[in-house]
C-alpha cells in the first residue's frame, strides 16, 4: 500500500522530468548527428554522422573556448573559495556585532546576474567608469583604460565580476560548517599553547575539509555552465578572449542558426563536465543519500 502511494506521488514529477529533461537531451544528442541548420531547413536535415564532432574538434575556436572555460572555471573556483573562506572565518569570530555584515555580504548574491553584469560594465566603463577614475587618481594608469576592450584585462575582470557575485555562496557553506566546530576545541588547544595558525590548520581545516570539497565541485560545475555574466559583459569578446563553451554554443545556435553543430558542441561540453559530476555524485552525494 505504502509503496504504491509513494510511486503515485512521485510519478507525476518523474513523468514531467523525463519528458522535459531526458527527451530534450535525447533530441539534442540525436540532432548532433544531423546537419540541422535553421536556415536550410527547407533543404532537409540530412544525417551526417560524426561530421559535426570532427568539425568541432578541428575548430580552433572551439578549443580556444575550451581553454578559456578551463581558466575561467579554475580562477573562479580559486577566487570564490578563498574569498568565501576568508569572509566566513571573519564572520565566525566571536566578536560582538558581526551579524550585520552577514546580511550585507549576502547582497551581491541577491543581485540578478544580468544586473550585476550591467553594474560592472558601468563600473568599468572606458571613460566614465569608477574603476578608471580611481586608477587614474592613484596614478596606476595615465589615462582611462578600456578594461573590457583588451583581452587580458577583459579576462581578469569578468572573473572578478563573477567572483564578486558568487562568493557569498561559498561563504555561506563555510560559515555553516564552521558553526559545527565545538568552541572547546579551540580553547583546549589554546590552553595547550597552540598558536592561531596551528589551531587553524589542526582544527578548522579538518572540520572544513568536506565543505571545501563540496564547494569546489559545485563552483566548478556552476561556473563551467555559467553564461549570463560573460554574455552581457563581453559577448565573448574582444575577438574571443572571453569566449567560453556556453557562449560559443549559444552563438552557434542562435546567431549562426546551426543547431546540429551547436548540439555536438553541447554534447562535448557535457562529456567534459561528466567526469566531475560523476565523481561528485558518487563520492560525495552518494554517501550522504545512504
Amino acid at each position: 500500500m505504502n509503496k504504491h502511494m509513494g510511486f503515485f506521488l512521485v510519478s507525476p514529477t518523474i513523468a514531467v522530468m523525463i519528458l522535459v529533461i531526458v527527451v530534450p537531451l535525447v533530441i539534442g544528442f540525436v540532432m548532433s548527428f544531423f546537419n540541422y541548420n535553421l536556415l536550410t531547413l527547407h533543404r532537409g536535415t540530412p544525417f551526417i554522422g560524426l561530421s559535426n564532432y570532427t568539425r568541432a574538434l578541428r575548430d580552433s575556436n572551439f578549443w580556444m573556448a575550451f581553454w578559456n572555460t578551463l581558466w575561467w572555471t579554475l580562477s573562479n573556483v580559486g577566487g570564490q573559495v578563498l574569498l568565501g573562506l576568508g569572509i566566513a572565518l571573519l564572520v565566525n569570530q566571536r566578536v560582538k556585532g558581526v551579524g550585520i555584515y552577514k546580511a550585507l555580504i549576502l547582497i551581491p548574491w541577491a543581485v540578478p546576474s544580468a544586473v550585476a553584469a550591467l553594474a560592472w560594465m558601468w563600473l568599468l566603463h572606458p571613460e566614465f567608469g569608477f574603476v578608471n577614475d580611481v586608477a587614474v587618481r592613484l596614478g596606476l594608469i595615465g589615462e582611462p583604460f578600456p578594461w573590457l576592450g583588451r583581452p587580458l584585462s577583459a579576462q581578469v575582470w569578468v572573473v572578478i565580476a563573477r567572483v564578486w557575485k558568487e562568493f557569498p555562496l561559498s561563504a555561506l557553506i563555510f560559515h555553516a560548517a564552521l558553526q559545527t566546530i565545538p568552541y572547546d576545541l579551540y580553547e583546549a588547544a589554546e590552553v595547550d599553547g597552540a598558536g592561531s595558525w596551528k589551531r587553524f590548520w589542526n582544527i578548522t581545516i579538518p572540520y572544513l575539509r568536506a565543505s571545501i570539497v563540496v564547494a569546489i565541485t559545485l563552483i566548478t560545475i556552476w561556473t563551467f555552465n555559467s553564461f549570463n555574466m560573460i554574455w552581457v559583459m563581453t559577448r565573448g569578446g574582444p575577438r574571443g578572449a572571453t569566449e567560453i563553451l556556453a557562449t560559443s554554443i549559444y552563438k552557434t545556435a542562435f546567431q549562426r542558426y546551426n543547431f546540429g553543430f551547436a548540439s555536438s558542441q553541447s554534447i562535448l561540453m557535457v562529456a567534459f563536465l561528466a567526469v566531475v559530476v560523476f565523481l561528485y555524485l558518487y563520492k560525495v552525494e552518494g554517501k550522504r543519500i545512504d
Partner: peptide
C-alpha cells in the same frame, strides 16, 4: 582616437 574607443 582615444584608447577607450576599442570598447565603444
Amino acid at each position: 582616437i582615444p584608447p577607450g574607443a576599442i570598447a565603444y
